[in-house]
Nucleic acid binder design. Structure first.
Lengths: 329, 329
DNA sequence: CTGTTAGCGCGTTCAC
DNA sequence: GTGAACGCGCTAACAG
């Protein structure tokens, strides 16, 4: 393994010059630069990252801590982050906190140990509640989950608005008793719950909210119980995420109920299956890729301008009306 | 940031003793160990990874290079790898090669630069064709994609067998003209193609194979063209992956064809939507999580026993017969 | 514009 | 069982 000294010797220059060329710093003559590049190629030299990091105390690595890697939403976000990172020759460490604050803390400490250049995080509720960017030795941007009291760079959907529009759509379609299944363990779930409540309040309707852990399995079990016990059935159910929506549809099958005839349905996340099933399902689509892209761009900006003013990107969900939300003629 | 010297001073011992305690090496008295641990806690000391790596030339980081991060199959694999890595306090760098050999090479070089302890890779075809484990300075295990000529630790499905069983099932269900849509750019696609051909040959039937890039969008477009041009239509179409299957179903919608009445359908990957759509779709389910788990276990074993004999884990797909594959009564 | 040199923080001899 | 000292490969400060 060739070292920087070997390159210097081969090129007949000092290690400092080699270092400068490699770092793309000014103050090197074209001839020197040329010779160095030639020697680098000749020797197949690759800088030792460990040494570089030890010395410079900096890294080209970003951390991405998502709360559920199985959620297609986060996959899409990850892909966007990956794409931009690759284009900029940045490494990214993807971690799955799995909605577990302990895992989340562990990974955050790992990021500290790794001396990462920055982190993109979708925080759990406890984490968000005590979040202060000053607690971390690296820039951080929040994605998907944030609230108005937390001062942090963030990229989020306008969840209250989206849930409100979705619920209103149901109301306008003639539904009265509208239930809401949501993940109470995240800021996003809570905000969508708020939007749901607001829409109901505006119409003088009373809520039937059901909190649960935001997984397909949990939603399926909870929904099954709900559907078997709740008499009379509500007119409609809204799911606060694509995963919950999926569990809900499975539960409907399990108990032999049909939508929208027996009960109307709507939810979040425009996953492929929501338009493939019959009847197709009304959802709010999130600009997932765009959210990931915005997050890493925000992070890169923050890394370059640490003192920059806090920025928040709020994106709007798109209501896609399909057949599941309205009674059939 | 406390350094090892600070701990040594605080504990009234030498840095060497601290290092020994931290590494869990023998040759340290219990009292010294005790004092060191206490000081570590008191100072909140965390070893500097960059320094440790520079000195030891080793890393606790694994690389995971998947060929398509959007494919639920690889998500599940990633999750398994994540889980095991977390349990063993290993870091993992997840990279998305996106079926692009250049990206793949870039990430492999990055792994070398990072001095990772090992890599899990789902190789592109060109990569697999020239693959020699000796070309890489780290242990590597292949996942999802491998062939019998390559000598490498690997975890794969028995693709030929699975495709054969799937195709035979179609034949037994009375289908005669059976088309096959597959990703020719991967070993997996090719092997499934082989299985398909074998099953047809066994029944004296002739193949209608269609190679394509293995994405939903591509499959949708190709299938749409195929369905509009191909007259008469085949009796059935088999998709070599979940993504292709999805595009196929969308194309069927696009051109207003119904399955299994107009054309039967079957494919790979037991994704949630395949049982949610009506009619539900016949598939071969892959033990995805298990494949990821096996891959990282293989890698860990190889890291600990570099000279161990090459091992290959071949898993069997599970045929799940649903309504899409048989003509309705 | 170029070269010399002093560490970055740790692991690991080798003495004691 | 313990400590002193060297060096992993590189960057940055400084001198020229």
């Amino acid at each position: 393994m060739a070292r920087i000294q070997d390159v210097a010797k081969h090129a007949g220059v000092s290690v400092a010059s080699v270092s400068r060329v490699l770092a793309g710093l000014p103050g090197v003559s074209d001839t020197t630069r040329e010779r160095v590049m030639r020697s680098v190629d000749a020797l197949g030299y690759r800088p030792d990252l460990a040494a570089r990091r030890l010395r410079s105390r900096r890294t080209d690595t970003l951390g991405l801590i998502v709360s559920d890697i199985r959620n297609p939403f986060f996959m899409e976000v990850s892909r966007a982050v990956e794409d931009v990172a690759y284009a900029n020759r940045l490494r990214v460490m993807l971690c799955n906190a799995d909605e577990d604050p302990d895992k989340e803390s562990f990974y955050l400490e790992m990021m500290r140990d790794e001396n990462v250049a920055g982190v993109i995080l979708s925080p759990t509720l406890p984490m968000l509640a005590r979040y202060k960017s000053a607690d971390y030795p690296f820039p951080m941007v929040l994605v998907d989950r944030c609230n108005s009291t937390v001062e942090a760079d963030a990229v989020v959907l306008d969840n209250v608005d989206a849930a409100m529009r979705l619920t209103r759509h149901l109301i306008e379609a003639g539904q009265r008793k509208i239930a809401f299944f949501y993940g109470a363990g995240s800021a996003t779930g809570q905000q969508r719950h708020d939007g749901y409540l607001a829409a109901l309040a505006g119409a003088g309707l009373s809520p039937i909210a059901q909190a649960l852990r935001p997984t397909v399995e949990e939603a399926r079990v909870v929904a099954r119980n709900f559907l078997e016990r709740q008499k009379p059935l509500p007119d409609a159910i809204v799911a606060s995420s694509g995963l919950i929506l999926l569990g809900l549809v499975e539960a409907l099958r399990d108990v032999g109920l049909r939508y929208p005839d027996d009960i109307a349905l709507a939810g979040f996340d425009d996953m492929p299956w929501t338009r493939l099933v019959t009847p197709a399902i009304t959802v709010v689509a999130q600009p997932t890729y765009e959210m990931g892209r915005a997050a890493i761009e925000l992070l890169r900006a923050r890394i370059q301008q640490p003192e920059q003013v806090v920025r928040r990107v709020v994106l709007r969900g798109e209501l896609i009306v399909r057949e599941s939300s309205s009674p059939r003629k």
